[in-house]
């Protein structure tokens, strides 16, 4: 997957849309901001989330960050290998470090997420 082809939430989640399925992960930018991630809790399969609702958590030694649902939908699959291989978040944030797949309640929501270019701008602003 190419970063340019994905959609983004301001809360630093990326979304890959395939039909009514959204694959969600956290961005490289977020991973770097948190420094060494030591723990990740996954969303619950079968549970539905609305946009902006916390569905998981990532932790570094000194900080905790919620992972927010970028779109509304039901979690149909989670990357259960990820919590034990957190290094994937650094090595392969867009491929192997996906976090969950959601069956979107209204796929049109994805359209309101940021494009890559807008997300990069958002990060620049957030960082300064």
């Amino acid at each position: 997957m190419k970063a340019e082809e994905l959609r983004y939430a301001k809360t630093h989640e990326w979304v890959a849309v395939d039909g009514d399925t959204a694959t969600v992960g956290i961005t490289d930018f977020a991973v770097k901001l948190l420094t060494d991630i030591v723990y990740l809790s996954l969303p619950i399969v079968g549970k539905s989330y609305s946009p902006g609702q916390a569905m998981g958590e990532v932790e570094s030694v000194k900080a905790v960050s919620d992972i927010y649902a970028p779109v509304s939908g039901e979690v149909i699959e989670v990357n259960s290998a990820l919590p034990d291989n957190l290094v994937l978040l650094n090595d392969s944030p867009l491929e192997k470090a996906w976090i969950a797949r959601l069956r979107m309640h209204s796929p049109s929501e994805a359209g309101s997420l940021l494009s890559y270019a807008d997300y990069v701008k958002h990060c620049d602003k957030a960082h300064h």
């Binding site: 060494d36 723990y39 570094s60 030694v61």
Partner: peptide, 8 residues
């Protein structure tokens, strides 16, 4: 001390 490994 390595706090990252301690927490992981």
């Amino acid at each position: 001390p390595d706090e990252v490994n301690a927490a992981r």
